[in-house]
Design a binder for these strands. Structure first.
Lengths: 108, 108
DNA sequence: TATTTAGTTAAGTAATTTCTTATTTACTTA
DNA sequence: TAAGTAAATAAGAAATTACTTAACTAAATA
């Protein structure tokens, strides 16, 4: 049951990440909290299209929204991303590999 | 130029991972090298469908194939997965987070 | 209170993805 | 060499995804 929930979350996360605009949105939110309009302004596509991308990311637990007055602000939820991706790397890569990569990073 | 190639690879990797059957194939290959038929036998879908999934994974640099006699054997290329996912986590998550997760793992 | 601004929801279309079956290629063995 | 097995390619149907514009809701301001 719990594991099944985890699989469904993983499914939604990988689905969410399979889109260049959505990965771009996450990159923007890594540096600052932004309103829906701030985000839409950085893309060529229409506002509803961006709004839909934001829903996908929110349903995957990758971002959270908060309405303040007229605006809706979005912020990154870095734990979901880190947990799902690190978890998957460790599941697939014979343990030593990801650790080595991280050790290198830690060493820097 | 180099960075553009990196972005195209990332694009293909996330695209490849956005499919449950393909993530399952990677999990199988994490434990052993398998022939195309061995892999197809583990799924309900037709062999050509599995073959197409294998192409997607191979084009993303996540697996490699080698023909030996009548069979084509597939094996995981763990570096691509680890590099792309770790790289992305670090790009998006304010550095501390993935390191902490890995430190915990290393501590075990 | 009427208008403007920010954002989402709805409905429909275009593009892409994921399957299927049929065909083809390459190797093995009777 | 003929027959059988393993796998990929081809062609097309069905399902999903990613957009568009139009309509709607909520908050701010004149």
């Amino acid at each position: 049951m719990v594991d099944d929930a985890h699989l469904r979350l993983m499914e939604r996360v990988f689905q969410a990440l399979a889109s260049t605009p959505r990965r771009k949105i996450l990159a923007y939110l890594a540096h600052a909290e932004l309103s829906a309009g701030d985000i839409a302004a950085r893309f060529e596509m229409s506002k509803p299209a961006v709004s839909q991308h934001l829903s996908v990311l929110e349903n995957a637990g990758l971002i959270a929204s908060e309405k303040r007055g007229q605006y809706v602000f979005y912020r990154l939820l870095p734990d979901t991303l880190a947990n799902v991706l690190n978890g998957y790397v460790q599941e697939v890569c014979p343990v030593s590999r990801p650790l080595k990569a991280e050790s290198r990073t830690i060493a820097e």
